[in-house]
Design a protein around this nucleic acid. Sequence first.
DNA 1: CTCGTTACTTACCGATCGTTCAGTAAAACT
DNA 2: AGTTTTACTGAACGATCGGTAAGTAACGAG
Lengths: 210, 210
Amino acid sequence: MAGAGAGVRSTTGGNGRNGRAAYDLPAVLDIAVTAFNDYGYDATSMGLLAERLGTSKSAVYYHVSGKEDLLRLALERALGALEGILSLPGATDGPAEDRLRFVLRGAVQVLVDDLPYVTLLLRLRGNTEIERSALERRRAFDHAVSRLVDQARDEGSLRTDVDSGTITRLLFGMINSIVEWYKPGGTLTPGRLADDVISVAFDGLHRPIA
Amino acid sequence: MAGAGAGVRSTTGGNGRNGRAAYDLPAVLDIAVTAFNDYGYDATSMGLLAERLGTSKSAVYYHVSGKEDLLRLALERALGALEGILSLPGATDGPAEDRLRFVLRGAVQVLVDDLPYVTLLLRLRGNTEIERSALERRRAFDHAVSRLVDQARDEGSLRTDVDSGTITRLLFGMINSIVEWYKPGGTLTPGRLADDVISVAFDGLHRPIA
DNA sequence: CTCGTTACTTACCGATCGTTCAGTAAAACT
DNA sequence: AGTTTTACTGAACGATCGGTAAGTAACGAG
């Protein structure tokens, strides 16, 4: 066993089958995603990943088919979490403004829960097929929220003097920026963060009338 | 003269001195920044830049000392434009809320005017010394805006139930997201965009009371 | 113990990266 | 014309990249 790394072995002493104990794939993915966010996907070498895992480059290839496979797995996790929001009852039943609030709150929650994974998703540029298909799914999610904004407008809840596409984009701009500055574990809890985001988005920066 | 590219020569037939006419450095920078944004700084090769310029790789090195030099020049332009806002009279005189509105409007204007340059700045990760020093200047700008938010709060213009740091970050999240979706030349003019941003930021998404 | 399966290790491959260098074409100056 | 200065060309450098091949150590099953 070479290297000075921690050695992220499977916590289960064995896998119930023959052979040596394997590295924990989720742990491998965690380290890969962190590195991708630190240095950028392209600038992160498989050698660096292996070093951080305390193993060799080719050992990584035993678990994943290649660098793009790591990216694909990570993006799947982020997209799955986001898409899951839309199928919850709170996103499908009730007045449009309530559903919009529910989805936005859920998005903040997912952002915080899977911070590095969503960070990776939000920084994609779409230069490979994997990135393009992930971006397409992300656009589908954005579009679903955009429809909620339209419905809330139709129901009279939202202002009509600003284009609804602009509103949706500014909304996502605000929410997505969270991955660039939020540090979990501080005094700002995820729940309070979601409250603040929703409140600022709907009521603005001015002091409340009441 | 090899290559099939456009050949971005200096528009001035000569430079008033000896020797051949040179490539226009600003034009070279434009192409470099566009490529950096398309593929990411690391994934953009000097070979690709040369190809887009209709030149050879080594010809680029006659004008710039290296890849990082291109990054440095580009970031200098973006940061200079942003910092310029803060020294204008509108940013230094008057009530804090007015100054805040002025700076936010100016930031939107700079974002649109120097879109690719600011885009590059906003995507930095800070892995080289050049990136780190640019990020420090960007943080200084952010901090100046944060102080304006604090002053506006002290003057009673802004809500006090949300942390001012959170407010500043959400504000910048909204504004900075513009580089990810705004396409100049459409029906949404820069001035209207700035109006919408300021209006949504201060008054929120709800329909106006009046 | 032996055997089969799993999980690696070391060494290496071709390709591409940023960068350099010696030579040369093109313009202005005399 | 010849000279000087500027702007480039083509080829190559060492380093590093993602990925592979062949051999081996570690385990469970019999």
